[in-house]
């Protein structure tokens, strides 16, 4: 198995990092309403996993989902426009941060409900494989999701029915503010192993390591069909949600945050490139995001008269709210 292209890995983590930082600026300026769940610090996981996927593979993300959507190949400009609620957004301004989806890129959607993506991606992969396609799927989930019964049911279905889904647990240590030690009896990987699902653990701060673990798992999955589980140990550099920028919640010590931030996936991936190459990628990413923000802010907001559009795929028209 050949290693991932270090240039690609660096570019992806840098893109996600700067995307999130620009998005936080737009939250502060009021251009993004409702806030976001920043992926800062966890970029190496989405970058490493998605670098091992094929374009026809599918992923389901989480509420902290920007990194998954971008790493799987969505256009950053359309993603930024979506966060800003514009008609040019991936979801035409109907989804926002927690529902960003790009079916053409194999992104079945970020998802606001913890643990919900596992069964959805299992069903999607099963249905396409029934047609003879040999794709695999990835369900990203957080450490909080391993306590959701629906996800454990999905492990069971994927294992029983030999559906090749890689369940990637981004263990950032906290379910919102609850530490893993207070929330998870037993161990996270043992949850998967109980269903006969092979589980491995990787340093989520190193995108090359994540890529290598993912590629190894996917090779086994494509050969024998069953699911696998990958726990990526990581640290969330910023808030659970940007509301924490205004309301300080006391659950992580400054020393712990400093320690967590000391292992930065952007620095780890960047240190593997010559300085000039890294600078060129940085400049390119800046240009891409500058254009993305400018395009998003210049794009039209949806017409309120279209608020019920896309509610029914069948063409059914809903009654309006009255008067």
């Amino acid at each position: 198995m050949s290693g991932a292209d270090p240039i690609r890995l660096y570019r992806t983590v840098r893109l996600i990092r700067r995307f999130e930082e620009r998005a936080i600026e737009l939250v502060r300026s009021g251009h993004i309403v409702g806030g976001i769940h920043p992926y800062l610090g966890q970029e190496g996981i989405a970058a490493g996993v998605c670098a091992a996927l094929r374009p026809d593979d599918v992923v389901a993300g989480t509420h902290r989902g920007h990194g998954h959507v971008l790493a799987k190949g969505a256009d950053p400009a359309r993603m930024m426009a979506e966060l800003c609620g514009r008609v040019t957004g991936l979801n035409r301004g109907r989804g926002g941060s927690m529902h960003a989806a790009d079916f053409a890129a194999g992104v079945l959607g970020a998802n606001a409900i913890v643990g919900a993506g596992g069964a959805i991606v299992t069903g999607a992969v099963w249905a396409r494989r029934r047609r003879g396609e040999d794709l695999v799927g990835v369900s990203f989930l957080g450490d909080g999701a391993v306590n959701e019964g629906m996800l454990l049911e999905a492990f069971n279905l994927a294992a029983l029915w030999r559906v090749p889904v890689l369940f990637v647990c981004e263990n950032n240590g906290y379910a919102t503010t609850m530490p893993v030690a207070d929330a998870v009896a037993g161990s996270i990987s043992a949850r998967a192993e109980a269903f006969g699902i092979r589980a491995s653990t990787v340093d989520g701060q190193d995108p090359a390591a994540v890529h290598a673990s993912t590629a190894a798992a996917l090779a086994r999955m494509r050969a024998d069909g069953g699911p696998e589980f990958l726990e990526a140990r990581t640290y969330r550099f910023d808030a659970h949600h940007t509301f924490e920028h205004a309301v300080r919640l006391d659950y992580r010590s400054p020393a712990e945050v400093a320690q967590g931030r000391s292992r930065d996936p952007v620095q780890i991936a960047g240190s593997r490139l010559p300085a000039a190459e890294r600078a060129a990628i940085d400049a390119d990413v800046e240009a891409v995001l500058e254009a993305a923000v400018a395009d998003a802010l210049a794009a039209a907001e949806p017409d309120p008269a279209t608020a019920l559009e896309y509610l029914y795929a069948s063409g059914l028209t809903a009654r309006t709210g009255g008067g």
């Binding site: 599918v58 079916f103 079945l108 919900a116 596992g118 069964a119 959805i120 991606v121 299992t122 069903g123 999607a124 992969v125 099963w126 249905a127 396409r128 029934r130 019964g149 629906m150 049911e153 999905a154 069971n156 279905l157 029983l160």
Partner: peptide
């Protein structure tokens, strides 16, 4: 036939439907 896992098999159906089943 499904195991007694109503939440997962209902969303499994959603996932299958999302790709055309």
């Amino acid at each position: 036939d499904t195991p007694l896992s109503e939440q997962a098999f209902t969303s499994f159906a959603t996932g299958a439907a999302l790709v055309g089943a």
